[in-house]
Write a protein that binds this DNA or RNA. Structure first.
Lengths: 156, 156
DNA sequence: CTATGTGCAAACTATTTGCAATTAG
DNA sequence: CTAATTGCAAATAGTTTGCACATAG
């Protein structure tokens, strides 16, 4: 029956945020954001992966527009850009609150990553920022490591 | 008088480390490593910057060789590759000991960076690694922030 | 309608690689 | 000598941009 797809729950707030900047809500922008909402908060995607997944979902968005949209949504704080050591830029859904601690355990051999949180790290970041007179925005700890199976494989 | 330049103090150990792998000590490799020793531990350089500085010092090394050498010296743990958020790969001199904590306060506006150390961060990294069964290699905290002058400029 | 956004292809930047000439050992 | 290394130029990967056409509002 519903031949007109129901507007996404978040579409309206996105629309008004865009309008505030004199910008438009396009299907492409909705598709990119919807993709990140579909896969949930913990998952990191590169521009290329976003493009591929949208193609697979029959949602055609050009790669150039994917890049433009990722930058736009990040500047709106709807996405967050990660800085993982290996591999290019990746993005994930930015959750509401001040979820600014955001740490990764990365296996340098197979690339497997685990996320974790740590209040101790935030405090250390805040102290360091304070000591130098900086205003903290976000802090990210990357732990380069070997995952259990890769550690086992490293006979050496 | 000294028409034959004296061999660098570290040249011999570098030579033997290379020989162990069936590799050679070339002037290019010495020049790149000597540059990092000249500028000291705290300074980060990109491949392009290494190339430029060597040119300025009349020490011609092709950019391709700079890339190859940075990779080689990093694999020998004489250099360490950083993962700073903005800008490409950068390298710095790797100091002897297990100097594996290595943190940056980066101004996201002007790019100015300060380094700091923190035992608390190391502990947090070790705990997280232990919890997931990973073997920790190195941990790097990046604090994205605004430096005092950029924070002041952000009138908003 | 018209300013904003999109798709495409070309442009760029950063990095890697093939290969002939050079050189450390 | 000869295998390793270099320099050059061409190749590649990731990202950005100019421009004509499409479209949200």
């Amino acid at each position: 029956m519903p031949s007109i797809p129901a507007p996404q729950p978040q579409a309206e707030s996105l629309r008004s945020e865009l309008h505030g900047r004199g910008q438009r809500l396009t299907p492409q922008r909705q598709r990119v954001l919807a993709l990140f909402e579909r896969i949930g908060e913990g998952s990191h995607l590169s521009a290329e992966e976003v493009h591929q997944r949208l193609l697979r979902a029959e949602e055609r968005v050009s790669l150039a527009t994917v890049y433009r949209t990722l930058r736009l949504l990040s500047s709106m704080e709807l996405l967050r850009e990660l800085e993982l050591p290996e591999g290019g830029r990746r993005f994930e859904l930015a959750t509401g609150g001040d979820h600014r601690d955001h740490h990764h355990l990365v296996c340098v051999r197979c690339g497997h990553t685990e996320e974790f949180e740590s209040q101790a790290v935030i405090s250390a970041g805040e102290q360091a920022a304070g000591r130098h007179g900086f205003r903290l925005l976000e802090c990210v700890l990357n732990v380069r490591a070997l995952c259990p199976s890769c550690a086992a494989a490293e006979v050496s």
